[in-house]
Structures are given as structure tokens and as C-alpha cells.
Lab assay of single mutants.
Amino acid sequence: MEVRTIKVFTTVDNINLHTQVVDMSMTYGQQFGPTYLDGADVTKIKPHNSHEGKTFYVLPNDDTLRVEAFEYYHTTDPSFLGRYMSALNHTKKWKYPQVNGLTSIKWADNNCYLATALLTLQQIELKFNPPALQDAYYRARAGEAANFCALILAYCNKTVGELGDVRETMSYLFQHANLDSCKRVLNVVCKTCGQQQTTLKGVEAVMYMGTLSYEQFKKGVQIPCTCGKQATKYLVQQESPFVMMSAPPAQYELKHGTFTCASEYTGNYQCGHYKHITSKETLYCIDGALLTKSSEYKGPITDVFYKENSYTTTIK
């Protein structure tokens, strides 16, 4: 009895394709271990004539594949690729409408935090270190965002349907971005203890939790000093293409032309909904596939993004 075979390709990165001759009487799992086709788990399936010449994702289970996976995804987590594939199996079914010149995501599976993050990423200057993220990001900007969303979920250790947080998501993504040249110098002034300067680099240099107003941050924000008295913390120097200011959701007025974009969060910790506000020729609110415009805006804002380049204080 002759062994019926077909020729397929296996890959971990969709760049390096490895030619395989597979036995049609055995499952993919018996031949390769966990195997995925377009995100779908085909591990328990036997090869079919229609699979001839198709590319299958496999887990990096030998040295060659491990090197290829690390170079593309910059992670050695053995569960990463499987999590990416199972997320992709959902995100490829989502709709990605162009809204006001940006790629958004039609609401499904509690994905409003991903839509808000995706919209924000198209408006701030950011370059990702893992080629996987950078490639998928370019495709997302062009309207094909399924891979990018699935990668975000995998890097953030999230599953489809789980509630997510924009600030946490951005923080994970910033860790995989090139923020080497970003720098922030802060000064804390206390009447009792004097003053202390701190220099922050990388992710810490672009994120701040405690106030939404970048102007206020430049002037000074009140913080408790270690001595128990009130101290003032203010920005001395900022070198970065953008800054992200966050605070627990509270009524906040966004003035046209003073910011790049913002995240609105309605609801409580267990259950809520994100919308995205962007400042173009007027203010726009993007909620999944829905767009509304207004000249002014007041609502429960939790993150505001500002364009920056270089700032030095005039406070002496």
C-alpha cells in the first residue's frame, strides 16, 4: 500500500517557510505537534488534498525554529505562539472599519479597549522592536488589523473576551517599542525636605499616572512627601515624541487643539466601556464603527496623549 502524501510549508514567522512532505494517514499533531492554519487549530486533523502548498504555523520545537521565533517575536515564552494563534482565530472574524481616516474595530468580545489602543497607536510616533509587531502594525494602518490585535493580546497575556485596560495595554506595548531616546527629568520640591531631581528613561519617561493635564504637570502637581507634608512635583525636561497622561476616570474637559487623542471610560472596574476622542479640525468621538463630532467635550476621561518633541522648564 502506497503512502499518500502532500507537500506543505511549516513556519513560526510566515517569513521562513520549511518544506514538509506530510503523510495523509496521520494527523498534523502526530507529525508536527500543535499546528495552526489561519489561526485555526488543526492539530487533530489529517492532511487533505486542499492543504497542498498551504502554510501551517507550528510551535518552535527545534533550534532553527526557536531562533526564527525569537528573532521575529522577541520572546522565548513557549506558550506565546499558541496564544497568538488562538487569538487570531477570533480577531480574523472582527470587522476593521476605516473611521475618520483611522483603522478602528467594530465592537465584539469586549474589544473596546483594543480599538482605543489601536486608534491611539496610529496617532503617536512609535516604532516597535519585534519585527512581528512592526509588520502587523503597518498592515493594521492599511486596514488589516487582525494579526496586530492578536499579537497585542498575546504580548499582554490576554484572551479574547476578557476586559482590558488601555493604560495597561499601552504599557505592555511600550515595553516592546523603541523608547531608548526618551528621557524625563522631574523635580520634587518640599518646604521641609528641599528639592530632589529624578531622571527617568524609556517607558517611565512617557507615562504618568495622577493627572490628565500635561500643562498642569509642567506647572506642578501636589504629591505627598515622605515627611508627610505636601510637596510639588513638576516637569523639568521632556525628550520624547509623545507623552501619555493618565488618571482614574473623572469628568474632564478636553479643549480642541490642546491634545492629540484621549480615552474615555464609562462604567466601573468590573464592567465598563471605552471610547476614543481625537482632536482634528474639530473633536471626534470614535466608538467602534461609530463616529460623532463636537466642538467641545466633557466626560469621564482616563488617558490623554500629547505630541511632544523637546521641553525644558522655565521655572527657576
Results as ranks from 00 to 15, higher is better:
Asp77Ile: 02
Ser79Phe: 15
Glu215Asp: 15
Leu118Gly: 03
Ala108Leu: 02
Tyr172Asp: 08
Gln134Tyr: 05
Gln31Glu: 08
Gln238Cys: 04
Leu151Ser: 04
Leu65Glu: 06
Arg83Ile: 10
Lys54Ile: 12
Arg167Trp: 07
Lys93Ile: 07
Glu204Arg: 11
Val203Tyr: 13
Ala115Met: 13
Pro131Arg: 07
Lys191Gln: 12
Ala115Trp: 05
Met24Ala: 15
Ile223Cys: 15
Gln237Ile: 06
Trp94Gln: 05
Arg66His: 11
Ala87Lys: 11
Leu126Val: 14
Gly257His: 08
Leu179Gly: 00
Ala250Glu: 12
Lys307Glu: 08
Ala142Gln: 13
Tyr172Arg: 10
Lys92Leu: 12
Lys219Phe: 04
Tyr137Gln: 04
Pro34Gly: 07
Phe217Gln: 04
Pro78Asp: 10
Met85Lys: 02
Leu133Ile: 06
Pro47Val: 07
Phe305Thr: 08
Leu133Pro: 03
Val166Cys: 10
Ile6Tyr: 07
Gly272Trp: 00
Phe56Asn: 04
Ala142Cys: 12
Glu264Pro: 00
Met209His: 15
Gln122Ser: 02
Phe80His: 07
Ala205Gly: 03
Thr302Val: 15
Thr278Pro: 01
Gln122Cys: 04
Pro60Ser: 07
Tyr113Thr: 03
Leu151Ala: 06
Phe128Ala: 03
Pro97Phe: 11
Val236Ser: 02
Tyr214His: 03
Ser294Asn: 09
Pro249Ile: 09
Thr91Cys: 11
Met170Ile: 09
Leu290Phe: 12
Phe217Glu: 00
Ser25Trp: 02
Asp165Met: 14
Met170Lys: 03
Phe128Gln: 01
Arg141Gly: 07
His273Arg: 06
Gly101Asn: 09
Ala140Val: 14
Phe80Ser: 03
Gly299Trp: 00
Leu153Lys: 04
Phe174Val: 03
Gln197Ser: 11
Lys298Thr: 13
Gly194Pro: 05
Gln230Ser: 12
Phe9Gln: 10
Val99Phe: 14
Arg83Phe: 03
Phe217Ser: 03
Pro224Lys: 14
Phe174Asn: 04
Thr120Ala: 14
Ile6Met: 11
Thr19His: 12
Val185Ser: 02
Val236His: 05
Tyr234Arg: 13
Thr302Trp: 00
Thr103Tyr: 09
Gln98Asp: 04
Asp13Arg: 10
Thr75Val: 12
Ile223Met: 09
Gly101Thr: 01
